[in-house]
Simulated scan of single mutants.
Amino acid sequence: MTGFGTAAVHGDDGLVPGGAVAPPIVQSATFSAESDERFTEIATEPRGSAFYTRYGNPNHAQVAAVVAGLEGAETGLVTASGMGAISTLALALLSAGDHVVVQRSTYGGTTSLATGLLPRFGVACTQVDQTDTGAFERALRPETRLVLVETPSNPLLELTDLAAVVASAHAAGALVVVDNTFATPVNQRPLSAGADLVWHSGTKFLGGHSDVSAGVVVGPAGLVERVWQTAIVTGSTLGPVDAWLLLRGIRTLPLRVERHNANALALARALERHPAVARVRYPGLPSHPQHALARRQMTGFGGVLGVELTAGRAGAAALLAGLKLAKRAASLGSVSTLVVHPRSMWAGIVDAAQLAAAGIGDGLVRVSTGIEDTADLVDDFLAALDAAPA
Rank of each mutant, 00 (worst) to 15 (best):
P342N: 12
N263D: 06
G208N: 00
T230Y: 04
D379C: 03
L238W: 10
T131C: 13
V212Q: 15
R279K: 15
A61K: 07
W244Y: 02
G239K: 06
V166F: 14
G122I: 05
D132V: 13
M345W: 12
W244M: 00
S28G: 00
G312A: 00
E37C: 07
A33Q: 05
I86H: 08
V277L: 11
A390W: 02
L162G: 01
G5P: 07
A292Y: 01
V378Q: 03
H209D: 14
G370F: 09
L305H: 07
A7P: 00
D196K: 04
V67P: 13
A183P: 05
W228Q: 02
R145D: 03
A387G: 15
L162I: 06
V307F: 08
T115G: 05
V224N: 11
L323M: 10
E137Q: 15
V123F: 04
A292F: 00
G69N: 13
G249T: 09
S35K: 05
A20H: 11
S192N: 13
L197V: 07
T2Y: 04
G19P: 04
L89I: 04
G306Q: 01
R269Q: 14
T88P: 04
L94T: 10
F31A: 06
P24L: 08
G315M: 07
V165S: 03
E34I: 08
A243R: 13
A33S: 14
V304Y: 11
A22K: 12
G239W: 05
R269M: 01
H274W: 08
V178M: 08
V178Y: 07
